[in-house]
């Protein structure tokens, strides 16, 4: 029995390390529950999106909404029946977020604010059950975001390899 425990010891250590690191990552980057949808065609090089953030507090800061907007554009993509839109996530999938955990932990501290801007007067707060839904139309500078992620080696550009 002792031998078996000895064999599995490194695995246990690895498992505990993974759990701790993911919970630390989540602690550093608390992402609110949000939904993302298209809000029409933005100016060239930008996405115009509507972010719905769900929170118990109706005073959700603009930075929190901006974080959700950039996160959504990077890892979720969005669509809209009204505007007949569908865009895939820039970074590919949530798997990329895990693969480049260090980069995104740092990125979602303040850097993300360089790529997003709220459309003035678009904030709407509605009560949904026991929580509030804060909806804001935001413009995300997707071309710049893409270029910077390419430069950081997180995503590949069309020119890579040629």
């Amino acid at each position: 029995m002792k031998d078996i425990l000895k064999i599995f010891k490194p695995l246990w250590v690895l498992l505990i390390f993974c759990l701790c690191s993911s919970s630390l990552y989540a602690k550093d980057n608390p992402m609110l529950h949000y939904e993302i949808e298209g809000a029409g065609t933005g100016a060239q090089g930008t996405y115009l999106i509507k972010i719905h953030v769900f929170s118990k507090n109706k005073k959700v800061s603009e930075d929190e909404v901006a974080k959700c907007a950039v996160h959504g554009v990077l890892f979720r993509g969005f669509s809209s029946k009204e505007f007949r839109q569908r865009q895939k996530p820039i970074a590919g999938s949530a798997l990329v977020e895990q693969q480049h955990e260090d980069f995104f932990t740092e990125f979602f501290k303040t850097a993300y604010l360089n790529y997003v801007q709220a459309v003035q007067g678009s904030r709407v707060v509605t009560k949904v059950g026991k929580q509030y839904r804060v909806s804001v139309v935001m413009s995300v500078a997707k071309d710049q975001l893409k270029k910077d992620l390419e430069a950081a080696g997180i995503i590949k550009g069309l020119n890579n390899g040629f």
Binding site: Q85, R86, Q87, K88, K142, G157, L158, N160, G161, F162
Partner: peptide, 14 residues
């Protein structure tokens, strides 16, 4: 509007 989807598929091809 449609360019990003096209570029993503082209990227997959490359």
């Amino acid at each position: 509007e449609k360019m990003d989807g096209f570029v993503a598929q082209l990227q997959a091809h490359f």
